[in-house]
Nucleic acid binder design. Structure first.
Lengths: 342, 342
DNA sequence: ATTAGCACTCCTCTTGGTTGAGTGCTAACA
DNA sequence: TGTTAGCACTCAACCAAGAGGAGTGCTAAT
């Protein structure tokens, strides 16, 4: 168990290092207010903290730097919840000033403001479209052999897919078809749509419409790929500011990772509320061993979720980012549920 | 006027520098095949070429490096059209292998392959949606006070906007409305849509539907922002490979520029066919003073255009990129017109 | 238990010297 | 007169050595 003095020193070191990015020495610590003991004492304590794995040295005679374990301890036990600046709150509120209705605009703006306020990179996951339910299904023929299928969901999201019409497919066939599809598919969630088409609708259609087979199969392949949540970025190049990313290769790897949808998806913890922090190698991706990721979720309505991630160096300002994310999450959730009930 | 020997030397220097990124010295040149004269002669010629502004030195006793003027001369007069590798052609063809119908997929894939083949960054502009014409206009109410307007264009593109319904707006009102809108708007291009709504449709509607005023104004604000062409990127981090971009700040500025839609748009030369090359400071953007941009356009159908840009260092492999773009442009144009006529 | 003192470590910055590729100029040559 | 060999000179790049400074660990005094 750590003594109070050790806790205090650990806290000061991490706080200082987060600001300066420089190894922290005993003399420096002793000058901090609240510190009443001498550099020598601090050196002894630091040696202990190092032995316990909370601190590291960059070389024999350097000051100390927090280890991953140190950061972990810091965020778990030393992170006093902190209010944020009224200026910051104001800026966050500004997202909702112009009474935008479109979810996408709000999220895009949020991504930018978050990256601006944190000076790290933000990634926002749009609402999970998969759980939306079909509100209306329609088909617009473009030419004799192609048509576009349009699905409007209960949340106003619109999906559309191009597909081929079977030859000799008449307008009245199409009308019948669309009626049946609407009858059967309204209320079905997008993730079940594919299944539902295959299982239920196919049989019914075959009874009523000629060449329904071809048609429905074209439709099935068109709806095969479920829509993924949109991803919004803010401050992609912010990490260039961090001294730990002055290495081109690191930056490159992280930027590349951020372009890969699947990798980005795996940064998030779906279905877990609250704020999550992953430090350095706690991330699954090797490229992220020098990064920390702080994630949380926000809600749209009762069941839909979106997610927020902030990516920065392990030497991240956890306190501030956690506070900002907390405000952001609540504000977004509130804004989206307000819109919806109006 | 340059002598033949000067032309030859200039060509060798630029060709060599494009490959090596190292200043080229007289001894090095003298060893190239086709060169029959001594280093001393070459030195004299180089001094002349420098005086004429085609070459530069990085320091007093360094080899020569092409100046912007040198590159300009090179692309204007020294660029012998060159066929490309059959392997490359094969790879380009592979874009069209799986008979994708969706324009977006093809373009996305093209962006990736172009960046792979060139090892520079590619930007593809999707077809100009503005010129699409309305094929069907529909409105799906989501709740008592919101609805989503959906516009399908003759090319299968789908635009949708959320907007507010006036209070006490009935289903039959809506139906009337949609009928009138379809009557009046079909065939109107998206860029004229806004104008058309204000000028023509408003008056007609007011005669037939209650509270058409509120409705149409909501619709007008919703359609205010014209859809921009989508932008697709390939190999965003490829420039990290180029030795001239080992400077974080340069890379950052260019990456930031590429995130700014308006800046990206201004890279292109709309309505000009052929291949355009802008070298270094010929670009309007200050951030691009070390870059060259090669652009061209492709067609979808008769009137629609998309555009391609390759961004690399001024020391770009112009010959290869021009050849690749030429093939790409033709293949894309061909693929899109084939699809369309089927 | 705390702290002052001191020897020691190692990074960082500077200095000076060496190497090598390349140039410009001059004089000799075909 | 155009071409080339020779030579002195320049400058980036690399390396080694030394000074300075921040910081540590240990020991002994408080």
């Amino acid at each position: 168990m750590l003594t109070n003095r050790q806790l205090q020193i650990l806290q000061v070191i991490i706080d200082d290092f987060i600001l300066s990015a420089q190894p922290v020495g005993s003399r420096q610590i002793s000058k901090k207010q609240g510190i009443t003991f001498s550099p020598a004492t601090i050196r002894n304590e630091m040696a202990d903290l190092e032995e316990l794995g909370f601190l590291e040295k960059t070389h024999t005679s350097s000051g100390r730097v927090p280890s991953e374990k140190g950061y972990r301890f810091y965020v778990d036990h030393l992170l006093s919840p902190q209010g944020i600046n009224s200026k910051d709150i104001q800026q966050i509120q500004s997202i909702f000033n112009d009474r935008l209705v479109e979810v996408e605009h709000i999220i895009r703006k949020s991504a930018n403001i978050l990256s601006e306020l944190t000076s790290y990179t933000s990634i926002l996951l749009g609402p999970d479209v998969q759980t939306h339910r079909v509100k209306r299904f329609s088909i617009v023929p473009l030419s004799s052999d192609t048509a576009v299928a349009i699905i409007v969901t209960n949340n106003g999201h619109v999906e559309n897919r191009l597909f081929n019409l079977p030859p000799d497919f008449t307008a009245s066939d199409l009308e019948k078809m669309v009626n049946i599809l609407n009858d059967r598919l309204i209320g079905v969630s997008l993730e079940e749509l594919h299944k539902s088409l295959e299982a239920e609708v196919l049989a019914v259609l075959q009874q009523h419409v000629r060449s329904a087979d071809d048609f429905i199969h074209a439709l099935i392949t068109a709806t095969m790929h479920n829509p993924e949540s949109k991803i919004f970025y803010g401050g992609k190049t912010n990490m260039f500011n961090q001294p730990e990313f002055h290495d081109l290769n690191k930056v490159r790897m992280i930027l590349d990772l951020m372009e890969t949808t699947s990798q980005v998806q795996s940064l998030f913890h779906p279905n877990e509320s609250g704020i999550h922090i992953r430090i350095g190698s706690e991330n699954k991706q090797l490229e992220m061993e020098n990064c920390s990721v702080i994630t949380t979720t926000y809600s749209i309505g009762d069941d839909q979720q979106g997610a927020i991630a902030i990516i920065g160096p392990t030497r991240m300002d956890y306190k501030r980012v956690v506070a900002l994310l907390d405000v952001m999450r609540l504000d977004l959730t509130q804004a989206f549920t307000r819109n919806r009930s109006e």
